[in-house]
């Protein structure tokens, strides 16, 4: 009887939409520092550290590509303030309008700045499964951002895509064709990459982590498959979702692939040896600690994801 009772309560509360406290104004940051890593491709390298009042969600690598006609933004930072600072950086480089905001996946450090970059005439493009994740997680992420940043989160919003990609799509920003590729479940279930065809620059979102512990939030087996396919692409320049590297393509994919391989191998062994989820989380992949930053923040979670996927093999 109480089971039904609990369900009742939850239905009641589902109707209650958490509303961010209003009144504060978003912090006004200086323009983000950007680097032109290939002609027309400008990257801001985020900080490899957890969300804090000091970084305001400036964690992911974000940036933009300038065409003859307009600008395509790729990822927007983890809060309105960071998105607004990216907008200033764009204005220091070009007067051309922003016509596309492309969000590589539905994680807070990539999408929460979008509210500062969208407006009339700006098309917002995501992977098709992004919408399902908004429904599943949007409210939770917004609440967590306000819990962690307080008033500094002001203005940050979950934005809906105006169009989605389920396979592949090309867009033209004037003399430049960008190819958007939607991938099957890997880092998340809604990973989207952007290839600037003119310079051969591939923006990978979090399909590529450098230094920052890779995060599994889609499928560990899918992640390995996608890395294999990415490795076959011809790429002249690349932009990881976190970190930076001087390694050539596709060698830069190897540390991440090795990390995921270890997780799969050791989690399968733990399952075979009848280890529980807790036991697996306390033992799998610990040899990898020295190779990655933020390991304690993400690694145990990765093992949880891998275990709950592989236990159904």
């Amino acid at each position: 009887m109480l089971g039904t009772f609990g369900y009742l309560v939850s239905l009641a509360l589902a109707a209650f939409v958490w509303v961010a406290p209003a009144g504060a104004t978003p912090p006004d940051l200086d323009a983000l520092k950007v680097e032109e890593i290939a002609p027309g491709n400008y990257v801001h390298f985020g900080r490899i550290e957890p969300l804090s009042h000091a970084n305001l969600g400036d964690q992911a690598n974000i940036g933009f590509i300038v065409g003859d006609r307009c600008v395509a933004v790729i990822d927007t930072g983890g809060s309105y303030a960071v998105g607004a600072a990216l907008r200033k950086a764009i204005r220091q480089v070009t007067d051309k309008p922003v016509c596309y905001v492309i969000i590589t996946h539905f994680h807070p450090d990539h999408f929460f700045g979008a509210a500062a970059l969208v407006g009339p005439g700006v098309r917002i493009i995501t992977h098709t499964d992004y919408r399902r994740w908004i429904a599943e997680r949007g409210r939770f992420y917004l609440k967590a951002l306000h819990r962690d940043l307080g008033d500094l989160a002001e203005g940050s919003e979950v934005v809906e895509p105006t169009e989605v990609v389920s396979d592949r799509k090309t867009i033209d920003i004037g003399g430049r064709t960008l190819t958007l590729q939607a991938w099957p479940a890997a880092h998340t279930t809604n990973d989207l990459t952007v290839l600037d065809e003119r310079t051969g620059t591939l923006w990978l979102g979090d399909l590529l982590f450098v230094d920052h512990t890779p995060v599994i939030d889609g499928s560990v087996l899918g992640f390995l498959d996608v890395l294999g396919r990415l490795g076959e692409m011809r790429v002249a320049h690349y932009v990881p979702g976190h970190g930076r590297s001087e390694l050539p393509w596709p060698k830069v994919l190897e540390p991440e692939r090795d990390y995921l391989d270890v997780i799969v191998r050791e989690t399968r062994a733990a399952l075979k040896n009848r280890k529980t989820l807790e036991q697996a989380v306390d033992s799998v992949g610990l040899s990898q600690r020295a190779n990655w930053v933020n390991f304690d923040e993400f690694h145990r979670r990765n093992v949880t994801e891998a275990y709950t996927e592989l236990e159904w093999e």
Binding site: W133, A144, V215, E297, F298, R301
Partner: peptide, 13 residues
């Protein structure tokens, strides 16, 4: 429960 991208919502269909 951990912060970052960790969320109670599902991954797969």
């Amino acid at each position: 429960a951990a912060g970052g991208c960790s969320a109670p919502g599902g991954r797969f269909r």
